[in-house]
């Protein structure tokens, strides 16, 4: 399959694979991340989704925002779940029971489902070498349960479980550097991205889909409820995160690191 040109006019003519009517909060970063990821390619995609804001707001009763086959089963197992789906695909293709349609497999998880409770499942799936792309939308805390600290919460942050108190001023620990931890798995492709830099992010997704094996992308995803910011600033803040080097945009392809966007 040829790589899709990333021109807005052309992209806009395409059909959404993640559609409106989902119930994410107004101005949430996550649906912007999801739409950009799914829009980057025309390959058929099957996705799994860890329990979290995205999952709980995108598929409620008979209403699903997904136009691709999608599965949520639990919080800590998006990687294991997609690895089972991918294994079944390989098995049935190998046995000639279904046709090989170059299906791509994605797992979506928030930072809670990725850095913390789903970390073992993610690490295991990456080590096993499944042909899958794991996308973490990192909003820096457990937003779905009401803004509790995660290991992605930055130092000093005020959350509902590490509130800025009279004695303890907020989170006392630094963030876990998950992107580098994933790179240390020796997988062929790891990247960091931001929805404000949509072309950079979509190029990374395209590149990931051309590589066989496990891939990981960590994407910053502002949460105006958790960050106590405005509903209109998800893109502005994700841009600022890149410009201030809080969220550098880089990729690690077969062990070689390259900064993809250099802040001015």
């Amino acid at each position: 399959m040829t790589t899709k040109p990333l021109k807005l006019r052309e992209l806009a003519k395409g059909e959404d694979r993640f559609t409106h009517g989902h119930r994410m909060c107004a101005g949430c970063g996550a649906p912007i991340v999801v739409k950009q990821v799914l829009m980057a390619t025309d390959y058929p995609i099957i996705a799994s989704n860890a329990t979290g804001c995205l999952e709980v707001s995108s598929c409620i009763q008979q209403y699903t925002a997904w136009k691709i086959p999608w599965m949520h089963s639990a919080f800590e197992n998006a990687a294991a779940t997609i690895s089972g789906i991918e294994a079944m695909y390989r098995s049935l293709v190998k046995q000639g029971k279904i046709e090989d349609k170059e299906v791509k497999f994605i797992a979506f998880g928030g930072d809670g489902g990725t850095y913390d409770i789903g970390f073992q499942s993610l690490s295991g799936a990456m080590e096993r070498g499944h042909d899958m792309l794991y996308i973490c939308y990192d909003n820096g805390a457990y937003m779905n349960t009401g803004i509790q600290r995660s290991s992605a919460t930055p130092f000093g942050a005020n959350t509902t479980t590490c509130p800025a108190g009279d004695v303890i001023p907020g989170k006392l620990q630094h963030r876990k550097d998950l992107t580098r931890i994933m790179a240390a798995h020796g997988i062929p492709y790891v990247a960091q991205a931001s929805p404000a830099n949509w072309r950079d992010m979509m190029k990374k997704v395209q590149k990931a889909f051309e590589i066989k094996g496990p891939k990981f992308m960590n994407v910053i995803s502002p949460c105006n409820r958790g960050w106590r910011s405005k509903t209109n600033d998800a893109i502005a803040l994700s841009k600022l995160a890149v410009e201030t080097c809080y969220w550098p945009l880089f990729e690690i392809e077969n062990g070689v690191t390259r900064v993809t966007v250099k802040p001015k």
Binding site: Q61, I68, P69, W70, M71, H72, Y89, V103
Partner: peptide
């Protein structure tokens, strides 16, 4: 895996 008829599992 019936990708032409996408389903959502786990609402």
């Amino acid at each position: 895996l019936d990708i032409d008829n996408p389903k959502s599992y786990g609402p």
